[in-house]
Structures are given as C-alpha cells and as structure tokens.
C-alpha cells in the first residue's frame, strides 16, 4: 500500500515535470503550424527580404521590422551596455558597504518596474525631449516618436539584467587575481579593467546577450515610443516598427493571410530568441567548465 503511494506520487511529480516540455511543444506546434504555411504562400524570400508591408494589397515583407528590431536593440546595447558594465564595476568594487544594500535593491526595483510603465515614462518624458531636439535643430522626424526614444527606453530596461549578471560574474573571479595585480603595482582601475573583467569575460558576454534577448522581445515599451510606421527605418530621429509591435498593432483586426503573416512574424521573432537562448546556454556551459 505504502509502496503504491510512493510510486504514484513519483509519477505525479514526473508528470508535472513534463509540463514545461508540453508547453514548449504546444507553443512550437501552434506557432509553426499557423506561421509556416503563410510564409510558404507569400514566399520565404519575399517574406523575409520584402521591403514593403501593405496588407491591403497582399504585400507582406517584414524586412523593415526585422531591421527595426535589430536597430532598436543595437541602440539599446550602445546605451545600456557601457553604463551597465561601469555600474556593475561600481557595485562590485567601489560601492561603500553601507549603501550597498540600498543600491542593490534599487537595481532589483529597476528590473521589477512593468514595461508599460517604462513605455509611459518614455511617452511623457523621452519623446517630448526628442521632439524638442528635432524641432530646434530642424531635423525631419515623426514628432519625437523615434528609434532614438525606443533605444533609450530599452537601454534603461536592460540595465538591471546587465548589472546583475556582470556583477555576480565579477564577484566570482578569485580574489587572488585582484590582489596579485595590485601587488604588482597596478592601480585599482587597471586591475579591474585589465584583470578582473577579462577573467569574467564570458559571464559579462552572457549578460549582454541576455540583455539583447530582453530588448528584442520587448513590446509594450517600444510600441508607446517608436512611432510604429510600417516602413524601412530611416534614421534615429524617425519612427520605425519592430517585429513585436507589428504583431500588437495589427492583430486586433487582421484576418486570413494577414493574420497568418503576423503569426509568421512571431515565428521569425521566436527563431531569433531561440538562437539568443542557445548562445546564452553555450556561454554559461563554458563558464561552468572553467
């Protein structure tokens, strides 16, 4: 009797553990089954490299959105990575012990703020700033809704990811490296940037790649500040549309092939994310082996 109960519950635990496998399988099946036929109908190349998106005329090219996602993410990396890495150096090596807990929970807070609040902040603060800049300098723009605004917001949003991962990886570098370098007469800064960071390199890169994943998948914060024009990106002061926002903008009223083309957009996004995830787990594996 008791043995039966033990075995039964083990089965229950096993079944529960299969939930994540089932979920991933279902997500893949439903996305691919709805998206791939549409891609075939449109033509894989036409879909991926087409520069025009005009659902009214049955023209579905998502290159503008792929580029949009890549540009906005690149902008976020340019803004977020240097600030993030320097901040994590501060957290790991410069921060006075007394205020460390406060700042640590502040970075966690930064991670906890919902994306819609970031988007709202971008809408009421960053977009007007960009608009003023455009107007005073006579640049062509879309009223401040722009790639720049989206990049700034995303740059802020990926900060906690980069700070968290980089800091913990820098802390896991053996103390002897640090002390050895100091003993050889190197300054504190030189030690950190020439010895500690290179030693933590793959962890730092993993943090950056995680940040890329977060930026490329972000939807609500981008939709509120990027302008969402379905056109090829035309400069940092102009509006653009990303893959994620394309789905949200049009899913509400799309039907037939248009709807399936949007799902196919999600498939492309999904593949991007899978590649990024793969990179992260490869980097982490290399870390564990070291």
């Amino acid at each position: 009797m008791k043995n039966w109960k033990e075995k039964g519950m083990q089965g229950v635990f096993l079944l529960a553990a299969c939930a994540s496998i089932l979920a991933v399988a279902l997500i893949c099946i439903f996305l691919f089954a709805n998206g791939i036929p549409a891609m075939k109908e449109i033509g894989f190349l036409d879909f991926l490299t087409g520069q025009t998106w005009r659902p009214g005329n049955n023209i579905y090219g998502i290159l503008p959105f792929i580029l949009g996602s890549i540009y906005v993410t690149a902008g976020a990396i340019i803004i977020g990575v240097p600030i993030g890495i320097f901040t994590s150096v501060f957290m790991a090596h410069y921060c006075p012990k007394k205020i460390y807990p406060v700042l640590k929970s502040a970075t966690e807070l930064l991670a906890g703020i919902p994306s819609v609040v970031y988007g709202f902040f971008g809408l009421v603060v960053i977009v007007p700033l960009v608009r003023d800049y455009i107007n005073t300098h006579g640049i062509r723009g879309n009223g401040g809704n722009s790639m720049l605004a989206a990049s700034i917001i995303l740059g802020i949003m990926i900060l906690p990811t980069i700070i968290g991962v980089t800091e913990s990886n820098m802390r896991s570098v053996p103390e002897q490296y640090y002390e050895g370098s100091l003993a050889l007469g190197a300054t504190k800064e030189r030690t950190i940037f020439r010895i500690v960071i290179p030693a933590a390199k793959s962890g730092v890169i993993a943090g950056v790649v995680l940040g890329i994943g977060r930026a490329i998948g972000e939807t609500m914060a981008v939709i509120m500040v990027a302008g969402n024009q379905p056109q090829m990106p035309q400069g940092i002061f102009r509006g653009l549309r990303t893959m994620t926002t394309n789905i949200v903008m049009e899913m509400g009223y799309a039907a037939d092939l248009h709807r399936e083309a949007l799902i196919a957009t999600a498939v492309v996004l999904f593949v991007f994310i899978l590649i990024i995830n793969l990179c992260v787990s490869l980097l982490n594996r290399r870390n564990d082996n070291d």
Partner: peptide
C-alpha cells in the same frame, strides 16, 4: 525547455 520558456517574449 524551462530555459526556453523563460526566454520567450511575452508577445509570443
């Protein structure tokens, strides 16, 4: 699969 799930964007 768990790692994959935690990386999937919310819109997906």
């Amino acid at each position: 699969t768990t790692e994959t799930l935690s990386g999937i964007p919310s819109i997906v």
